[in-house]
Design a protein around this nucleic acid. Structure first.
Lengths: 242, 242
DNA sequence: TGGGCGCCTTGACCTCGGTCAAATCGCCAC
DNA sequence: GTGGCGATTTGACCGAGGTCAAGGCGCCCA
């Protein structure tokens, strides 16, 4: 995919963030950028980078799912949010010239494009608008993190779970209103629990309650949504315009 | 302060963010920027801008305290975080060309510098590194919001309160370890409760518990810290390096 | 000096969700 | 199949914190 001499240099990858950066470069620099890109597959459980490390690379998620985790010295560890296909990672530490503030752990097997810091520095030096791209990434991340934060401040576990479910399927915001449909969860219960700030036991109980109320039926990682409007109501927070 | 012909153009205001932007401009543009700046005092309860509005101005907090609040259509409203003297507001909506995602409400009487969007646009057009400044602001905000998020995901109300107290006094991270000292809270209970994701009643009970345990003694807005090490332990999350 | 009005605290009550241990399920290798 | 192991659910228990209403306190103003 990266080697084909594309006629339309704006769409050379399946990663939105990658394309957004590429669009800010002239043909020549775009070639440099593409040539410096390599692709790697990461299995579940692997980490792209760890909190405290200095940043060496810029990452672009082509497929899969990566979680950002933050720990403190008291031993607490929180799974802050998910990064999906199309997103970029590592730009924060590179731009700030600081260590990674979070650990990026692979939650579902992911295909990732990688560009080394040195190439990036070289390009950024020649293209001052380059940082405009990162600014866009940061603003999106900030908005989403604030949405999550707002939810943690106000919503109950049950509603947070519904809202999280809504994240995993774009049909939730689609038009086919009252149709039941199925979502395939890409991650396991422990991770879901971490994202919600709870533990697998409590999560399991909440799922049982939803089941009993007839809203949503869980079967392992398959989730049958019986009342889409319940999800829709909760979904809104996450879909800030990007 | 803004009119004096400064010899050292880097430090013309008491606002760190303002100075950071100014430093990215040459002498000429810096003058344009300064001349376009006006100062305004906002009393408690006023808002700088509201969620959903289009952004017309860039704000710099010289003194006081501003809170960012996010509401959703279900009627929930969360006070996300505090913006203190030195911070900038409004750059997100301007940069993204979108509406404000949050409401900025004045929690403690504030002195604010204001620059109109049109001037900013003009300057940003001539100075492509300008967005690098905003990127820095966004990365800081993101880090802090993540820290708050992590705390909400893992910590109990009591510990979140201690951590919030620590925010209000830099002595907490200082060296004078075991000395008791006093903090003057700039905001009222309701706002504290909102920041912690709780209500005044529960907050009051938590305060009473801290009082009984001999850690911290509240007297209205005056807080006597008896065991600084208790605060120190919690403070760490918020002081990510900027 | 005595309302009046916010702000804050307290009481009573109860639900949500945390904790720990045991049981069950699902999956893979042998 | 069968044992093993991790993932998930369930049970039993209980504590943190939500809710609503009443009470106290401080402050301003007439």
């Amino acid at each position: 995919m990266l080697t084909k001499p594309s006629q339309e240099p704006c769409e050379v990858s399946g990663c939105h963030a990658y394309n957004a950066l590429l669009r800010r470069l002239d043909a020549n620099d775009a070639r440099v950028f593409r040539d410096a890109t390599r692709t790697k597959k990461f299995p579940v459980g692997r980490t792209l980078f760890s909190q405290g490390e200095t940043c060496e690379q810029l990452y672009f998620i082509e497929s899969g799912l990566v979680g950002l985790r933050r720990s403190d010295e008291n031993g607490n560890s929180a799974l802050l949010r998910l990064c999906r296909a199309g997103e970029s990672l590592g730009y924060r530490a590179i731009t700030a010239g600081a260590a990674h503030q979070n650990t990026a752990e692979v939650l579902a097997s992911s295909q990732v494009m990688i560009v080394s810091k040195s190439v990036l520095r070289w390009l950024a030096h020649r293209n001052t608008e380059f940082s405009g791209g990162f600014l866009g990434f940061a603003l999106n991340a900030l908005n989403q993190t604030e949405a999550i934060c707002a939810e943690l401040l106000t919503a109950r576990l049950k509603d947070r779970l519904l809202s999280l479910l809504a994240m995993f399927d774009e049909r939730v915001v689609g038009s086919e209103s009252s149709q039941r449909f199925e979502i395939e969860l890409p991650i396991q219960r422990k991770d879901l629990a971490d994202l919600l700030g709870t533990n697998p036991a409590s999560l399991s109980r909440t799922i049982a309650r939803l089941h009993k109320d007839g809203d949503v039926r869980f079967n392992g990682r398959r989730v049958l949504v019986l009342k889409p409007e319940a999800l829709k109501k909760e979904a809104s927070r996450f879909w800030v315009q990007s």
